[in-house]
């Protein structure tokens, strides 16, 4: 899914023959419009081979037999590890560009993104206010993830990382209130239809403790995967820091 985003950004017109089905979800994928113009595949080898690709970009975490079967079928496979930091994201962007034979375009874009990042983030600040990420089902995002790195770059401390809570862990509502973070970052709705998991984000206690000014809604598509969209997330996080916690 994350490599779909990068490939959609970098590939020459007509170069891609298929993307994964999640890449077409407008709430998860910033490039869903482009993705919808292409056939979607799930992790089924038959479907992938049916598109007769020369190259498959595969998540390094995909089951080993998938890559082995694809290779036996004569398809080149490039297995890539998901990026967990902005810097890794740029490296991955170059990798994908290289694999697609568009190394120059990749390097140019990566350099440009790095320049923009430096401009958005500016000088490091002395006081780093505390932010907490709270997602559906009361899960929070800790160290070793892209959101954690973007928070750090934007001058925030991440509650879950400070408490060593693991990459993706439940944070009880009570504990969240007691920690009293300066900013609460919520997911956007993942569907037009409701779920209990997301109804929790509108709990009365949260509405009372975190009025509009202390919350930021950041759709997962902006900071889950590496890509140019991370800069939008960074801009919003830096703006929120200046608004809320930036004053010494």
């Amino acid at each position: 899914m994350c490599f779909d985003q990068l490939a959609l950004t970098l590939a020459a017109p007509g170069q891609l023959v298929g993307v994964s089905d999640v890449a077409r979800d407008p709430l998860l994928s910033p490039r869903w419009r482009e993705a919808r113009a292409l056939p979607a595949v799930r992790m089924r080898i038959e479907e992938i081979l049916g598109l007769r690709p020369d190259l498959v970009l595969l998540d390094a975490q995909a089951p080993a037999h998938v890559a082995a079967l694809l290779r036996r079928a004569g398809v080149a496979v490039v297995a890539l590890r998901e990026a967990a930091t902005f810097a890794e994201g740029l490296a991955r962007l170059r990798d994908v560009a290289q694999a697609l034979g568009r190394g120059d375009a990749g390097r140019t874009l990566a350099d440009d993104l790095e320049r923009q990042r430096a401009a958005i983030v500016g000088e490091p600040t002395a006081r780093r206010p505390l932010a907490a990420v709270w997602q559906a089902n009361g899960f929070t995002v800790g160290a070793g993830t892209m959101p954690d790195d973007l928070l750090r770059l934007a001058g925030w401390r991440n509650l879950a990382a400070e408490r060593g809570m693991g990459a993706f862990a439940p944070l009880p509502l009570e504990t969240l209130l007691r920690a009293a973070p300066d900013l609460l970052i919520l997911d956007g709705a993942s569907s037009e239809r409701p779920s209990l998991a997301e109804a929790l984000l509108a709990h009365r206690a949260l509405r009372r403790e975190f009025p509009g000014g202390r919350t930021l809604v950041l759709p997962p598509g902006q900071w889950l995967c590496a890509g140019p969209q991370n800069l939008d997330a960074l801009r919003q996080l830096v703006a929120a820091r200046r608004r809320i916690g930036g004053v010494p």
Partner: peptide, 25 residues
């Protein structure tokens, strides 16, 4: 049938019950 990705996993709540994170509402 719900298009919401979390909905399916909430079968646990409806068939096994819970009082976690309920509010005065």
């Amino acid at each position: 049938l719900s298009p919401n990705p979390y909905a399916f996993y909430e079968v646990m709540f409806w068939l096994m019950g819970s009082l976690a994170d309920r509010s005065l509402d």
